[in-house]
Simulated scan of single mutants.
Amino acid sequence: MSKNNNIIVVLIFVVAWFFNINKVTFAPLVVSTLFILLTSLLAHCARRLVQKSINEPFVRLLFEEAIAAAELCGCCFELIVVADNFGVGTYAIFLFALTIWWSLNWGDATACPYTHIEDVIEGKGDIRKAFLKTWAELLGGLLVFKYVQTYWALEISETHKDKAFEECRADLQVPVIYGAVVEGVATCLCRLASKSLGDLNPRFATAIDSFIGTSLVVAAFDYSGGYFNPVLATSLKAGCEGHTLLEHAVVYWIGACAGSILSVYMYKIPAIQRYVRGTTAVNGDSIWADKED
Rank of each mutant, 00 (worst) to 15 (best):
C188E: 08
K195D: 12
D199A: 05
L200D: 00
A220C: 14
Y223P: 01
S215R: 01
F165N: 06
S196W: 11
R191Q: 10
S194R: 09
A180H: 07
L216Y: 09
T187K: 08
A170G: 12
A219T: 05
C188I: 03
I212S: 13
A207M: 04
S224E: 01
V176K: 03
C168I: 02
V174N: 14
G184M: 02
G226I: 01
G179R: 12
R169F: 02
V174Y: 13
L216P: 10
G213W: 11
A207H: 08
V181P: 05
R203K: 15
D162Q: 07
Y227L: 09
T214H: 10
C190I: 02
C188Y: 07
A205D: 12
L197S: 01
E183P: 08
G226C: 04
C188D: 03
D222T: 05
L216C: 08
S196L: 09
L200Y: 02
L197F: 09
D199C: 02
R203A: 15
P175D: 14
S196G: 12
A219D: 14
P202M: 06
T214S: 03
L189C: 13
A193Y: 01
G198P: 12
Q173N: 11
A186M: 04
R203D: 14
T206V: 10
L197V: 02
A207T: 03
A207P: 08
A180W: 06
P175C: 09
S215V: 06
T206H: 09
S210E: 02
Y227W: 12
S210I: 07
G179L: 12
A164P: 14
R191E: 00
K163C: 12
N201P: 00
K195A: 12
G226W: 01
A170D: 15
Y178G: 09
F204D: 11
P175F: 07
S224V: 00
S215M: 04
A205T: 08
V217Y: 01
K195G: 10
L192I: 07
L189T: 15
S194C: 11
A180I: 08
Y227I: 07
S210K: 07
F165G: 04
S224C: 00
L200N: 02
